[in-house]
Structure formats: C-alpha cells, structure tokens
Nucleic acid binder design. Sequence first.
DNA 1: CGAAAATGGTCTCTAAATGAGACCAATATC
DNA 2: GATATTGGTCTCATTTAGAGACCATTTTCG
Lengths: 129, 129
Amino acid sequence: MTPRTQRAMPEGDDRGFEPGNCPVRQVLDHVSAKWPVLILMELGQEPRRFNALQRALPDISKRMLTQSLRNLERDGIVRREVFDTKPPSVSYSLSELGHGFLPHVLALVEWAEKGMPTIISARAAYDNA
Amino acid sequence: MTPRTQRAMPEGDDRGFEPGNCPVRQVLDHVSAKWPVLILMELGQEPRRFNALQRALPDISKRMLTQSLRNLERDGIVRREVFDTKPPSVSYSLSELGHGFLPHVLALVEWAEKGMPTIISARAAYDNA
DNA sequence: CGAAAATGGTCTCTAAATGAGACCAATATC
DNA sequence: GATATTGGTCTCATTTAGAGACCATTTTCG
C-alpha cells in the first residue's frame, strides 16, 4: 500500500561532539564569548590596566571583567603583572598564545562588518514577514 | 620633593567601542556565543533538521536551540525551510553568508586544538600557584 | 589637617538568562 | 487504541550576570 502522505525526510543524524567534557568547547567559551572577545581586542592593541579596561569597555561590570580576565589568565592567553606602585598597578597583556588568537577575532569582526548590509536587509525581510 | 614611592604607571586609556548600539557586537553575540558556534559547525557539514540538531548537540535545550536558530535565521546566516511532510519537517542550512563565516569558526577550533597543550600546562601552573 | 580620589578587586543582592520538562495537533505505526 | 514522531512553545526552577557597596593604602587638593 503506497502511503499517500509523504514520508519525513532523512535526518542526517550525527553523533556530534562529546557534551560537557570537550576541552575545545571550554576554551572557546573562555575566548569567543561576549566579553572575552572585546577584552582580547583591547589587549591586542596594547597592554592595559584593570581600570583602563573597564573604562574602555564601559558596559562590562567589574565582576565579569575580573572573571573573564581570570579565565584568560588561567588558560595562558593573557598575562597579569602586578607592579609595586602606590597604589599597586596591575597590567594585563596578551601572551604569545593570545597573540596567535588575535587575527582570528579580527577576522570575525571583519566578516561581520563586511556582511553587515546583508545582515541588515535579512533582518528587515525577516521582521517584515 | 621627590616622592619616595613610585607613581602609578600610565593607563593606556582608550575610548573603546560604542557600548550597546554597536551592530558588530550584536552579530558577534549571535554567532560566536556558546551554542551558535556548535550549531554552525553542524550545519557546516550538512543541512540538518531540528531534531537532528538536538540529537547531535545533546546538551543544548530545545529552548536555546530554537532561540539560537531564530537569531541566525533573522541575521540571514541560516536558512529555514519547512517541508510539507506528515509530520512537517524543518530543515536548517547555511546561507551564503553563513558559509562565509564557517572558515572562521573552523580556524578558531583549530587554534584551540593546536594550543591545547600550552593551555593545559598554563592551567596546571596557575592552579598550582 | 581633613576630605576626596585612585588603585584592583571581592561580596552581596537583585535582575536576567538559561535549563528541564510538560504540553500541543496531526498523523503514522504497532 | 496506544505510542511515537514532527517542531516548537510555555512554565517553573536554577544558574548566571549586573549594580553597587565596601576595603586598605597612599596621594593629592584645599
């Protein structure tokens, strides 16, 4: 008996990546998330001190700035140096690993900038529909 | 009178990017966040249906999968096609714009993989200290 | 001298985002 | 008839992020 209604299409299943224990995921989360991206771009220009970062990124909270920097430092992407001034100064800069990452972020931004017109009109079309 | 304590170092200030209204930021958030990255990598291999994506990414919730896909669709990065099967099938695939983005994500992953040994030992050093 | 500002954070409290899972209508399968 | 499947949405609990007070020390300003 031939069914008169069409069968569902093939799924194209795939086991995907291992869920929580994937190390690449963790690093990506530390690096490609909202704030880390902006922080790394700032540090890509020049080393900056904690408060300077905060002023450069006015809408990040102290809390998230600290947390993001800690993650990046722990992963060896950012270096933290304390100088014994009064009051003490803390300078953050890209490590070698961090410098290797920088071009990729910049490429992302460039892609976004170049695609922006397309994106804008796609949004207009979507919202209009 | 020469101060005996060292002065704080220069800040290296910078006005940074415009806070909330930056369009590039929005796109980056839709594209480089945790789930979107994984979704785009899946779609980079082949178009996939909603439930297939969910099975490929077992630890994403329906809620976030839907939300991420909607963002990507609205920005014209992902295309959504509904097929009139019973029950109806919905296929997600990369648009041209999306395909242009794919190499960048892959580069990120490659960078993370290549740097993983360095990262691992950086973490060990950090945790040890 | 006393007050205010700056350093780099931490801590708490609240607001927002996320995860877990029930639920839906229509149809096919068992 | 019961169960499963489709692609979601909706609600509720949990997790995460944001806002801002607070800290000790020293410098500058009045």
